[in-house]
Design a protein around this nucleic acid. Structure first.
Lengths: 190, 190
DNA sequence: TCTACTGTAGACCAATCAGTCTACCGGAGG
DNA sequence: CCTCCGGTAGACTGATTGGTCTACAGTAGA
C-alpha cells in the first residue's frame, strides 16, 4: 500500500503527461518518446498500466478530463447560476489559452479529432463531453429549469465553449471567447 | 492554355484529396502516400505545385475551403435572412456528418488542431474562419443589422457551428447540431 | 532467505513518415 | 525537327513511429 500522497505513481504521471501533450499537439502529434520523457516513466511501465498502448492511455486520459471537470462543476451546484457558471468556465479557459500563447486547446476536442481508426479515443471524447454536459445540466436543474430544457441548454453551452475555443486557437484571438460570453448571457437571461 | 474544364489538373486533384482526407483523419493522420494515391498524382508533382510540401498543400487546401464557403454564402446576400442561412449551413453539415457515419468533420477545425509547430496550417485555418465569418456578416448587414453587431454575431455563428460539429462527431449524434439550430434561432429572433 | 512484483533503463524491431532522387513519357513552341 | 517542361512512375533515404524485448534494481510477503 503506502504512498497515496506526495509523489504520483507512474500511471498518474502518464495520464498527466498525456493530457498536457494532447492539449498542445493533438493525438497523432503526441509521440510516445516525448510522452514518456515528460512523465519520466519507463517505456515498459506504460504497457504494464495500459496494455492497449497509446490508444488506451489517451482514452483513459480523455475520460479522466471529463470526470474531473464534472466533479469540479458539481461542487458548484446550488451555489452559482448558469450565467455565473458559464463566465467561470470561459474565464478559466481564456486564461489557459492566453498563458500558453494560443497553443493549448481542449484535450477532449483534440481527442475527438483523432483519426477515425481509433474508435476507442473518439468514444472516450464522447463520454467526456457527456460527463461535462451532465454536470452543467445539474446546475441548471438546481436553478429551477425543467430537466429537458436543462439537458438541451447544457449541451449547447458545451458546444459553444468548444467552438469558441477552436476559433480562438486558429485566429489567435480571445474575441470568440468574449463573444460567446456575451451571446450566451443573453440567451440565459431569456 | 486549353483545358479549364472536364478534367481537373494535378494541383486541384491534390487539393481535393487533401480536403477529403483532412476532414476524415486530421492533418497528422493524413499520410502523403494515401493522399497521392487518392488524388492519383505522382509524388514528384506535389513538390512541383507545392514546394513547401505537405504543410503548404494543407494550408492551401484549408484556405480554399474558407474561400469557397465565403463565395457560396455571399451568393445568398439579400436573398435569405440570418435564421435561414443558419438553417442552411446546419442542414448541409448534418447531411455530410450523417452520410459519413460521423467520420467527417470540418476540415478547417481539423487544420486548427494541427500540431503547434506548423504555424502555416494554423494560420490558414484562422484565415478560413475569418473568410467564413466575413461572408456571414455581409448577410447580416444586408438584413439591416449594424456592422459591429453583424461581425460579432457572425463570429458567434461560426463558433456555434464548429462546436456543435465537434460534439456531434465525438458523441455520434446529430443532437448537438439540432440544439444549435434551436438556440441560435431564439437568439436571432431577439 | 527466496520469490514475486513493480518499476527503470535502454537496446531493438518492422513499419511508416516526409522528402529527394533518377528515368521516362508526351505534347507544345521554337 | 528537336528541345523543353509538366507530368508520371517508382526506387530510395534518414528519421521517427508504436511496440516488444532482455536485463536489472528495489521492496514486500512467504
Amino acid at each position: 500500500m503506502a504512498v497515496m500522497e506526495s509523489k504520483a505513481g507512474p500511471r498518474e504521471r502518464l495520464v498527466r503527461a498525456a493530457i498536457a501533450l494532447v492539449q498542445e499537439k493533438g493525438v497523432e502529434g503526441t509521440g510516445l518518446t516525448e510522452l514518456l520523457a515528460r512523465g519520466d516513466v519507463a517505456r515498459r511501465s506504460l504497457y504494464q498500466h495500459f496494455p492497449g498502448g497509446k490508444d488506451e492511455l489517451i482514452a483513459a486520459s480523455t475520460r479522466q478530463v471529463g470526470e474531473v471537470t464534472a466533479v469540479v462543476i458539481r461542487e458548484l451546484v446550488g451555489q452559482v447560476d448558469a450565467a455565473t457558471l458559464f463566465e467561470l468556465m470561459l474565464a478559466t479557459i481564456r486564461q489557459g489559452v492566453v498563458d500558453s500563447d494560443f497553443r493549448y486547446s481542449c484535450p477532449i476536442a483534440a481527442a475527438a479529432y483523432a483519426p477515425a481508426d481509433s474508435d476507442r479515443v473518439r468514444d472516450a471524447a464522447g463520454a467526456a463531453f457527456a460527463d461535462w454536459r451532465g454536470a452543467i445540466a445539474d446546475v441548471l436543474v438546481e436553478e429551477g429549469r425543467p430537466a429537458d430544457a436543462a439537458r438541451g441548454l447544457a449541451g449547447f453551452m458545451v458546444a459553444t465553449v468548444e467552438g469558441a475555443l477552436v476559433v480562438a486557437r486558429a485566429t489567435r484571438s480571445t474575441e470568440p471567447l468574449d463573444q460567446a460570453a456575451v451571446y450566451l448571457a443573453e440567451l440565459l437571461r431569456a
